[in-house]
Design a protein around this nucleic acid. Structure first.
Length: 257
DNA sequence: ATGGTCGAGTATCGA
């Protein structure tokens, strides 16, 4: 099974690139983030034409998450169901695809260490853990895929010195990610690759992509039954090149069976 | 040279 995740930074403008990419990457499941679409505007027909069924959770201008699957898509849940009030944003959608409980997540950016959005980010991680506790089981196949807006380790950013007192690398954020993983998830990319300087996101500004100034913040987290079957993982940097790219590259993870 | 870019929408905000 091939699972992929891609922050597309507006599906409206990115749809041609996504269609092209699906044509050659052919994932069984693709999780997308930052569609920036309302549900009524989601281009379901374009995906169905390529053999994918779809689920989308969005409210228009910001955020928005989707799962498209050619191995079935059942039991779709929008947002959290850990028993608290609804999230203010559309940042989570879950579905069962080919026997795997898949979630597409767009973790809040945080903006700054003193910003209210940073507290929202930390609480969001806690809610995601509680959501998994309430709805899933780490002993069955689970894949939590998306833009986590956290670089797990210093080797996941182009220059740790450039991120002092910044979001994405702070100890509380890394601890929040680690606490999520402690539920029973592993970073599938790191099961395959140990090298540094492998990134999934590069700022549009200042030629960061060409200067290799990036961050690895897009992850596929898998439960043990999937982790044991991971055979391949790659960040498709080619999708960050060319005309009208997203500022994120897609991440692909393959598992046996 | 002290800025560099996108995408939302059409003034700025968010990343």
């Amino acid at each position: 099974m091939r699972i992929a995740t891609w922050n597309v930074n507006s599906l409206k403008i990115r749809l041609p690139r996504v269609e092209e990419w699906l044509g050659y990457a052919r994932p069984d499941v693709l999780c997308m983030q930052e569609t920036k679409l309302a549900d009524a505007a989601f281009p379901a027909l374009a995906f169905e034409a390529l053999g994918y069924r779809t689920a989308h959770h969005g409210d228009g201008r910001w955020n928005g998450v989707a799962i498209v699957s050619r191995v079935g898509i059942d039991d779709v849940v929008d947002g959290f169901c850990e028993g608290l009030e609804a999230d203010t944003d559309t940042r989570l959608i879950s579905a069962t695809c080919g026997g795997v409980r898949v979630s597409s997540v767009y973790v809040p950016n945080g903006r700054g260490l003193e910003d209210d959005h940073y507290a929202y980010k930390l609480s969001w991680f806690d809610r995601l853990r509680r959501h998994l506790e309430a709805t899933a089981d780490p002993d069955v196949p689970v894949a939590v895929c998306g833009d986590f807006n956290v670089a797990p380790e210093d080797r996941d950013v182009w220059d740790p010195a450039a991120f002092v007192n910044s979001t994405h690398v702070s100890a509380p954020e890394r601890q929040a990610l680690a606490h999520l993983e402690a539920w029973g998830l592993e970073d599938a990319f790191r099961l395959v690759h140990q090298e540094d300087k492998l990134y999934t996101y590069w700022d549009y500004r200042a030629g960061d992509f060409h200067q290799h100034r990036g961050m690895r913040i897009d992850l596929v987290l898998v439960s043990k039954p999937l982790a044991e079957k991971v055979t391949f993982a790659v960040i498709d940097r080619n999708a960050r090149k060319g005309k009208l790219p997203s500022d994120h590259a897609p991440l692909i993870v393959d598992t046996a069976d």
